[in-house]
Design a binder for these strands. Structure first.
Lengths: 177, 177
DNA sequence: TATTGTTATACTCTATAACTATA
DNA sequence: TATAGTTATAGAGTATAACAATA
């Protein structure tokens, strides 16, 4: 807080402790806000659309790719392992929202795509979802949102150095040796 | 972005759409940062201390209350339902980190407290945990942290109006009627 | 009758590893 | 031998509801 030069070891230490507490309190507040927003979204997705966040996220990925995505690509983008993608895709396919189309040139793989019904359904959900987000972040002015967006970009950059925890990176042959 | 007055309905609408996208993008970035941090913490708690976030959080609540807390109070503070608190407390008690002491004046309830071993163990974990947080948020300067802290306070206030999703609030008798 | 805490059950989300069918 | 995807299994983490003991 102060710009005074260090006067003693004790001052230095107390400043370090303060800096630690600053980071910790910041994290706790950040976590509280995020989980609150996430909880509201989960709850509403369930009660209004009988769906879940991972299912919504999978549809969102497909909506941006008219050509479809392979299971592996979905796994990477959703940051979850392959088995999970299989399960979610099974559900969505059972409801007629997505299809596993054949992959040109690789008969092991699919191109998972939205069906027309899936696209309609997703667009309806996405519009509502966006309105919820607007409502939840209405506590900030446009300027404040821009400010946070910029600050988060900096943090995201910093965090990229840390191993992604849920990352589904498969072991390379060399690592297996 | 511009301060010009509205010129047409189309301009107004495009501005609304932009505002929506601004909120959505902000949320996605916020979520990405938070889940990344949380993932790193979970992973490290497991590999370094063989524990989990809910267990850590329960100990953290007790550390601040030398008198101990009842199961119901823990349930409220951790924002989870009673059954979960029972399970976590069972584990921690089995490891000798907490005890269920009797509650003066209410033989249905307990006062869950840290044991001396639990306190030692928690303090060791908490110090390391704090260092991790400092490391993860090192992408921001002290000034930026302060800025975010202030902004989050505003948001938290706004979010308080929304029903807490995981809240364990029991139904009142009237609601059961 | 209401409340504290426990038990039993179930569901979502996730990871790991063995498996199959192609490549 | 390597890769795409599936299956089976396990384990967090959570909620709900029926229950026992006490208030």
């Amino acid at each position: 807080m102060s710009a005074l030069p260090e006067l003693s070891t004790t001052d230095h230490e107390s400043r370090v402790v303060d800096a630690h507490h600053q980071a910790l309190k910041l994290w706790l507040r950040l976590l509280a806000c995020t989980t609150r927003v996430e909880g509201v979204i989960r709850q509403r997705l369930r009660s209004e659309f009988e769906t879940t966040l991972p299912r919504f996220d999978l549809l969102a990925q497909l909506e941006r790719e008219p050509e479809g995505l392979s299971m592996g690509e979905l796994s990477q983008r959703l940051m979850v392992t392959g088995g999970n993608v299989t399960g979610i895709t099974d559900q969505l396919e059972g409801e007629g929202l997505v299809v596993r189309a054949e992959h040109p040139g690789d008969r092991r793989a699919y191109r998972v795509r939205l069906t027309p019904a899936g696209r309609r359904q997703f667009r309806r959900m996405a519009a509502t979802h966006e309105a919820w987000i607007v409502e939840l972040f209405d506590g900030w002015s446009a300027e404040q949102k821009t400010q946070v967006q910029t600050l988060l970009a900096v943090l995201k950059q910093h965090l990229a150095a840390f191993e992604a925890p849920g990352a589904p990176r498969r072991k390379t042959p060399k690592e297996n040796a």
